[in-house]
Design a protein around this nucleic acid. Structure first.
Length: 885
RNA sequence: AGGCGGUUAGCUCAGUCGGCAAGAGCGCUUCCCUUACAAGGAAGAGGUCGUGGGUUCGAUUCCCUCACCGCCUACCA
C-alpha cells in the first residue's frame, strides 16, 4: 500500500468479482426475517443513466444495510423486454442491412430480436454491477422468461374469465410510426404552437356555419357539426344539414351539451373516428364513423382526392383548397397540447380501432384502500395524493399492441365468425364451439406493462406455488421514480391484490428526478446527460454513489452540477490515506494484533480524547441508523462525512501524533481506539461506498480480528454505550483555544507550524496538565505560566489575547500592524454588539420572560453572557493593543 | 384550468415539529509540498433565508397574498 492517492479502478473490479464468486449477495436460505426489494427492471435496450445510478444506489444502500443488520436480504434483479422500444431498435438495425420486419416475417424477425437481446440485453446489468449493485444475480429475471409468459397468460385468461378483459372498438391513441395502439399513459403531451383554423361549412339552403379546428385534415371524416342546445346563435340551425366540402356529404347540425359556447365559434365539427370527444358525441347521437387515415398516418380512400397524402401534407393542401374556395374565415395562432408517442415522439393520432382492454375500476378498489388505511406508505408522503387521484379517475387500460415483440395475446379466432374467441393458456387445436380446426391466433401482443405489473410475484415463479413466493412475497420496499407511478407502481398494487390477495410491498420510496441546469430531465435524447459510466471509469463507483447521495435529499429533484462527484472522490482519498496512517502507525509501534477488549474494560481510565471520540462515535451510530430508517440518505452520509473527516481525522488522528514511539498509552489505548473507530466507520460507510470499505476491511484484518471475512457480510455497528458527555465540552474548549492561537499566529505571520513560547495567566483549562499538553501539541506552542500582573510588563512586539479570566501572549514576527489589528477588532466588536443588543432587548421584555419556555430563557441568558464576554474580551484586547492598561 | 414541488452564500444543495451568532461541498482570499492525505493542511471572506401581509414574546421555519422557475394531471375542438 504505497500509493498516496486512492485508485479505485482495479479495486472495484476486484471486489465485485470476489463478492460474486463468494456468493455474498446470493440468498440460499429461507430462515431469518426476510427483507426484499425487487428492482424496477430496466429496459434491455437501456444504458445506465444518472437516474438509474441514483435509484439503484438507494436500493443498494438499503439492501446492504439490512443485510448487515442480519436480515435475510434479497434484492431481485431483472430486465424488461420493452416491446415497442426494443422492436424499434432492432428494426433500425435491420434497416441498415436493407431489411425490414415485414420482409423477414414474424418468426424470423423475432429470432433477430432474441439474438439482439442475447447480445445486448444484459448491457445495463453489467453496468449495474459496476455501480456496485448487490443483487442476487442467480435470480435474474426477464419479463419474457418462460415462467413469466406463463404468468402473463394466466393473468390474461383469469381476467377474461372474470369479465375484466374485453375486446372492443374504441377510440385509442395510435402511433402511426410504430403502427400500434398505446395506452393513455404512453402518450406525452407537450405545448406546441399551432393554429386555430376557422372553416366555413355551407349550410344546406343558405349561408355558412363556421367551425374552429386545429386539425383541418380531419374534416374529411366529419359526420356532424355540434352546437350547444342553449346557444341562441345557432338555435335555428339545429337539425339542418351541412354540405361537407370535398367529400360532398350531407351531415347534420346537432345539439350537444358538451360543446363550449365560449370556445371558437361555439360550433364544432365532429369527427368520431379521429377525436375522443367527438367519439363520445357520436355515440350519443348515433352518428356515422368514417376513418380517413390508414395506420401509418396517410389519408385513405375515404379522403377522396387527398388519398395517399401524409396527414400533415394533407392539412396544407386542404387549407390551400379551402382558401381557394373562400371557405377559410380566419386563422389564429394557437398554443395547444399535442400528444406524442413516448417511445418515438411521433404525433399521436386518436384512432378508432378494435383493441383489448382491461376494466380497471374494480381492480383499483383494494389498491386505494390499502393506501388510505396506511398499510402501504409513500415516501415522501405527498405522492399518496397523486396516486389516489389517479386511481380515483382510472380509465380502462388498452393492452393490445400491434407489434411482434412481446407476449402474444392468448386468444384464437375461429374461421366461423359466430364462434366466440378462444381464450386459453394452452394452444387450442380445434374450436371448442364448432369443432373446426380453422383457428388463428390474435396477431397482437400485450402492452409491456401488462407483464411488468406482475413483477413482484412473477419473479418468484408465480403461478407456481414456489418456496420463494411463500417466503419473499410480499416484498418490503420499492424504490422508484415518479414518472412510473401510474405505469407501474399503481398497477403492481392492483395486480398484487388481484392475484396474490396481498399488497406487493409496504413502502414506496420515490426518489427525486435528476435534471440538468435548465430543469429538464436528463436524458440521452436531449443530449444533456451526464454519463455515470464515464464517472465510474474516471473516479470510481463509490465517488459517484457518494456524490449523488449527498446531493439528493429526501425525494427532492436535483439539478446536478458537473464535478458533483468530487466530494465523494476526495472523501474516499481521505479515508484511504487516514487508513494508511493507521497502518504506518501500527507498524512503527510493532503492534500486530490489536485488541480493543482491554480498552473497553478500562474505559474509565482513558484519556480525554479517547473518551471523546468514542462518545461521539456512539452518537453518530445512533443518528445514522435513524436517518436510514427514514430514508434520509443524504443526512446519513453527511453525518458520517462530518464525523470522520472533521472529528476523527482533523482532531483525533492529530492528537494521536503527540505520543512518542512505543509509548505505553499509545500502544495500549490510542492505537486500539483508532482502529476501533475506523472499523465502525468502515461498516457505517459500507452501504454508501461498498468498494473502498471492502478493500480496507481486508487491510484491517492484518491488525484486528473482525466478525466476517467480507465487510459485506459483517454486522451493522451498534453503539457500545460510551457516554462520557462531559468530555464533549472540554474538547470543544481545547479546540477553541487551539483555533484562537492558530488565528493569532496566522494574523501575525507566525508559521502555524513554528513552535513558539506563549506566556499565560489564569486560563483554567491549561492548569490541567493533560489538557495543556494537548493544546501545546496541536497549536505548536510552549506555555509558560506567569503572574497576573506581568501583563503590564509585556514588551512591544508581543501580542496579548484575553482568554477566559486570563490572558496569553506571544512574540510576533517583525512589526505588528496595530492599525490593521485595531480595525479588525473594532469590526468584530461592532458586529457582536449588534447581536448583543438584540438579545438584551429580548431579555428585558416582560412578554418574552413570561411566555418563553424556561430552557429558551436560560439559553438566551447564556448567549447574552457569552456575547458580553466576547465584547469585553475584544475591548480589553483593543486596550492592550495601544498599551493603555 | 387544477394539483404538487422549488425560491437560503458566486454555483449545487442541506436545515428549521417556531427560539443559532443560519450550515455543507465546490468556488474565492491569505499562508503552508509539516514524516496519512496538495483529491491535502491552517486561517478567512461571503447570506437582512423570493415579495407583501398576518399569527406569535419570538418567523428563514406556521398561515394568507403575489412573483418567478419546474413538474404532473385535465375531452375545451
Amino acid at each position: 500500500m504505497e500509493k498516496d492517492r486512492y485508485h479505485p479502478k482495479e479495486i472495484e473490479q476486484y471486489w465485485y468479482q470476489k463478492w460474486e464468486e463468494s456468493g455474498c449477495f446470493r440468498v440460499d436460505r429461507y430462515d431469518g426475517e426476510p427483507y426484499v426489494i425487487v428492482i424496477p427492471p430496466p429496459n434491455i435496450t437501456g444504458y445506465l443513466h444518472i437516474g438509474h445510478a441514483l435509484n439503484n444506489t438507494i436500493q443498494d444502500i438499503l439492501i446492504r444495510w439490512k443485510r448487515m443488520q442480519g436480515f435475510n436480504a434479497l434484492w431481485v434483479p431483472g430486465t424488461d423486454h420493452a416491446g415497442i422500444a426494443t422492436q424499434n431498435v432492432v428494426e433500425k438495425e435491420l434497416m441498415k442491412k436493407g431489411l425490414s420486419r415485414e420482409s423477414l416475417g414474424r418468426e424470423k424477425f423475432l429470432k433477430e430480436v432474441w439474438s439482439w437481446r442475447e447480445k445486448y440485453g444484459n448491457r445495463i446489468i453489467e453496468q449495474l454491477k459496476r455501480l456496485g449493485a448487490s443483487c442476487d444475480w442467480s435470480r435474474l429475471r426477464f419479463t419474457m422468461d418462460e415462467n413469466f409468459s406463463r404468468a402473463v397468460q394466466t393473468v390474461f385468461v383469469s381476467l377474461y374469465e372474470k369479465g375484466f378483459i374485453y375486446r372492443g372498438t374504441r377510440i385509442i391513441n395510435w402511433c402511426p410510426r410504430c403502427t400500434t395502439a398505446l395506452s393513455d399513459e404512453e402518450v406525452e403531451y407537450r405545448e406546441e404552437d399551432g393554429y386555430l383554423y376557422y372553416l366555413r361549412y355551407p349550410v344546406e339552403g343558405n349561408g355558412f356555419v363556421v367551425v374552429a379546428t386545429t386539425r383541418p385534415e380531419t374534416m374529411l371524416g366529419d359526420t356532424a357539426v355540434a352546437v350547444h342546445p342553449e346557444d341562441t346563435r345557432y338555435k335555428g340551425l339545429i337539425g339542418k344539414m351541412v354540405n361537407l366540402p370535398f367529400v360532398d356529404r350531407l351531415i347534420p347540425i346537432i345539439a350537444d351539451e358538451n360543446v363550449e359556447r365560449e370556445f371558437g365559434t361555439g360550433a364544432v365539427k365532429v369527427t368520431p373516428s379521429h377525436d375522443p370527444q367527438d367519439y363520445n358525441i357520436a355515440r350519443r347521437h348515433n352518428l356515422q364513423f368514417i376513418t380517413v387515415m390508414d395506420t401509418t398516418g396517410k389519408m385513405n380512400e375515404n379522403a377522396v382526392d387527398f388519398a395517399g397524402l401524409d396527414r400533415f401534407s394533407c392539412r396544407e393542401k386542404i387549407l390551400q383548397q379551402l382558401q381557394e374556395k373562400n371557405l377559410v374565415e380566419k386563422i389564429e395562432p394557437y398554443t395547444h397540447r399535442v400528444g406524442h408517442c413516448y417511445r418515438c415522439d411521433t404525433v399521436i393520432e386518436p384512432y378508432i380501432s378494435r383493441q383489448w382492454f382491461v376494466k380497471m375500476k374494480d381492480l383499483s378498489i383494494p389498491a386505494i384502500k390499502v393506501v388510505v388505511d396506511g398499510d402501504l406508505k409513500f415516501y415522501p408522503e405527498r405522492w399518496t395524493k397523486v396516486y389516489l387521484q389517479w386511481l380515483d379517475n382510472i380509465q380502462d387500460w388498452c393492452i393490445s399492441r400491434q407489434i411482434w415483440w412481446g407476449h402474444r395475446i392468448p386468444v384464437w379466432y375461429c374461421a366461423n365468425e359466430k364462434c366466440p374467441p378462444i381464450v386459453s393458456i394452452e394452444i387450442p387445436v380445434v374450436c371448442p364451439c364448432c369443432g373446426c380446426d380453422k383457428i388463428v391466433q390474435d396477431p397482437d401482443v400485450l402492452d409491456t406493462w401488462f407483464s411488468s405489473w406482475l413483477w413482484p410475484f412473477a419473479v418468484f415463479g408465480w403461478p407456481e406455488k414456489t418456496k420463494d413466493l411463500e417466503i419473499f412475497y410480499p416484498t418490503d420496499t420499492l424504490v422508484t421514480a415518479q414518472e412510473i407511478l401510474f405505469f407501474w407502481v399503481a398497477r403492481m398494487v392492483m395486480a398484487g391484490f388481484e392475484f396474490m390477495g396481498e399488497k406487493p410491498f409496504s413502502s414506496v420510496y420515490i426518489n427525486g428526478t435528476v435534471r440538468d441546469e435548465t430543469g429538464r430531465k436528463m436524458s440521452k435524447s436531449l443530449g444533456n446527460a451526464i454519463d455515470p459510466v464515464e464517472i465510474i471509469d474516471e473516479s470510481g463507483a463509490d465517488s459517484l454513489r457518494f456524490g449523488l447521495i449527498s446531493l439528493t435529499s429526501f425525494g427532492q429533484d436535483v439539478f446536478l452540477p458537473d464535478k458533483f462527484y468530487y466530494k465523494g472522490r476526495n472523501f474516499l482519498n481521505k479515508i484511504w490515506n487516514s487508513f494508511r496512517y493507521l497502518e504506518i502507525l501500527a507498524e512503527k509501534n510493532q503492534v500486530n494484533k490489536i485488541s480493543f477488549a482491554s480498552v473497553i474494560e478500562n474505559a474509565k481510565g482513558l484519556h480525554l480524547q479517547e473518551k471523546w471520540i468514542l462518545t461521539l462515535l456512539d452518537q453518530n451510530i445512533r443518528h445514522i441508523c435513524e436517518c436510514l430508517e427514514n430514508f434520509k440518505f443524504n443526512e446519513a452520509s453527511d453525518c458520517i462525512y462530518e464525523f470522520f473527516w472533521h472529528q476523527y481525522c482533523d482532531w483525533y488522528i492529530e492528537m494521536s501524533k503527540m505520543y512518542s514511539e512505543k509509548d505505553q498509552y499509545l500502544v495500549s489505548c490510542v492505537i486500539p481506539s483508532l482502529f476501533y473507530v475506523m472499523e465502525k466507520v468502515l461498516k457505517l460507510l459500507h452501504p454508501f461506498v461498498p468498494f473502498i470499505t471492502e478493500e480496507l476491511w481486508h487491510h484491517l484484518q492484518r491488525f484486528v480480528d473482525v466478525d466476517a471475512d467480507f465487510i459485506t457480510k459483517s454486522s451493522w455497528p451498534r453503539p457500545y454505550g460510551f457516554n462520557f458527555e462531559e468530555t464533549l465540552e472540554n474538547m470543544e474548549e481545547i479546540k477553541n483555544i487551539v483555533i484562537e492561537i492558530r488565528d493569532v499566529k496566522t494574523g501575525f505571520r507566525i508559521p502555524v507550524n513554528q513552535n513558539v513560547d506563549v506566556d499565560y495567566y489564569g486560563i483554567l483549562l491549561l492548569s490541567n496538565d493533560e489538557y495543556r499538553k494537548i493544546v501545546e501539541f496541536l497549536a505548536k506552542v510552549k506555555f509558560n505560566s506567569k503572574e497576573k500582573n506581568s501583563i503590564k510588563n509585556i514588551p512591544d512586539g508581543e501580542i496579548v489575547k484575553i482568554w477566559g479570566n486570563g490572558w496569553f501572549s506571544m512574540k510576533t514576527e517583525g512589526v505588528i500592524d496595530f492599525e490593521a489589528e485595531k480595525k479588525k477588532l473594532i469590526g468584530e466588536r461592532d458586529k457582536i454588539m449588534k447581536i448583543f443588543e438584540g438579545v438584551e432587548n429580548k431579555l428585558s421584555s416582560d412578554k418574552f420572560l413570561t411566555h418563553a419556555p424556561e430552557d429558551v430563557i436560560e439559553k438566551t441568558k447564556k448567549l447574552r453572557d457569552e456575547l458580553k464576554y466576547e465584547i469585553e474580551k475584544i475591548e480589553k484586547n483593543l486596550k492592550l493593543l495601544t498599551r493603555e492598561q
